[in-house]
């Protein structure tokens, strides 16, 4: 009973908020900033993977596009940074309309491959369009302007950016707990049945895709402003892969899992880099493989399962069935 209460939403929310507010006191502020940006990115990916059953392997396209757009707007217009970040999110959402429209007709591994292909296309464009993006040199000298307030100290910038991330996380929570979110889960679990109930499955998937891209863009835009620099890394496929890894590590279809996965991976990367370790991928890869083998529901998914004895209201652990084709078998 007490354990159930501890795992309840108000307590969790309070703990999460406290952690977010004290983070830059505990760890190096720029790392704290990375952590919350990646947390929102991972949650956005979970919106699609956990609640719509679509594994996107191309979300770097949205994170990276927003990073470039936010950076360019901040460099060239001198507008306050939240405006630049919002414009980045809008750009990501706009890009997601055609990409999503062409992708949501496929499911499972095919969906992953199609999104990956589009992301590689975006990478290619960013690499070639040197005049705009700086190509391999990256986009440099992005200011952090907020009505003349000095935000050059990463410690203060963290608190300036945190509300944007919290708003993004709240949006993700709202979407999942909305009538739309209920339909998404139905589409994920049994698309043929959802269709027979009058829901246009592809259009629902497309809207979920665009919302997920917008939130990824919000995170990517803030990430760019925080670093004052955008590199090609932001549109590279390993960035998509890292976001998926965070979600799987934390627990698919849990929202909180993405936050925890992001915190762990960013901290681990930073620790290894600081220690001068060069092959970071080997360690994070091993940690990832071990965690997924031992806790199939991911860290948060497993913890919640053990604490409350169920896997949550609607989230589903395990990526195995994300190939949502199972219900389509009625075409006999």
């Amino acid at each position: 009973m007490i354990i159930r209460l501890l795992a309840g939403r108000p307590i969790l929310l309070a703990v999460g908020l406290l952690a977010a507010l004290t983070l830059p006191w505990v760890i190096y502020p720029p790392v704290a900033m990375d952590m919350i940006c990646w947390a929102l990115f991972a949650v956005a990916v979970d919106l699609l993977l956990g609640f719509t059953g679509l594994l996107s392997f191309g979300h770097a396209a949205f994170w990276g596009t927003a990073a470039y757009v936010s950076g360019l707007i901040a460099v060239h217009s001198g507008l306050p940074f939240p405006v630049a970040v919002l414009a980045g999110a809008l750009a990501a959402a706009t890009l997601a309309v055609p990409i999503g429209w062409l992708s949501v007709r496929s499911t499972g591994i095919y969906f992953a491959m199609v999104t990956l292909a589009f992301a590689q296309l975006v990478y290619f464009v960013a690499n070639q369009w040197r005049g705009l993006t700086g190509g391999e040199n990256g986009l440099q000298g992005i200011p952090r302007d907020l009505f003349g307030v000095d935000l050059s100290d990463p410690f203060f910038f963290y608190y300036a950016g945190l509300p944007i991330i919290l708003a993004g996380l709240w949006c993700a929570w709202r979407v999942v707990r909305s009538p739309f979110g209920r339909v998404l889960v139905a589409v994920r679990d049994n698309p043929a049945r959802a269709r027979a109930l009058g829901y246009p499955v592809e259009k629902y998937k497309l809207l979920a895709f665009v919302l997920s891209a917008a939130l990824s863009g919000l995170a990517g835009g803030l990430f760019a402003i925080g670093h004052g620099f955008v590199s090609l890394q932001e549109v590279y496929w390993t960035t998509s892969g890292q976001a998926v890894m965070m979600v799987v590590l934390g627990g698919i279809g849990t929202l909180w899992g993405g936050v925890i996965g992001a915190g762990l991976i960013v901290e681990l990367n930073d620790y290894l880099a600081t220690a001068g370790f060069e092959e970071i991928g080997i360690v994070t890869g091993t940690v990832f493989a071990a965690t997924v083998l031992i806790f199939r529901r991911g860290i948060w998914g497993t913890a919640r399962h053990l604490l409350t004895g169920h896997s949550g209201r609607r989230g589903r652990a395990g990526a195995g069935r994300s190939a949502a084709a199972d219900g389509e078998a009625v075409r006999a």
Binding site: R174, V175, S178, P179, F180, V183, G198
Partner: peptide, 21 residues
């Protein structure tokens, strides 16, 4: 409830609470 909602536009309202159902 999901079936009853199918004929309405409520399913698109991602900014509303699912308590509306």
């Amino acid at each position: 409830e999901l079936a009853l909602q199918g004929g309405t536009g409520l399913g698109w309202r991602f900014w509303r609470s699912d308590r509306r159902m």
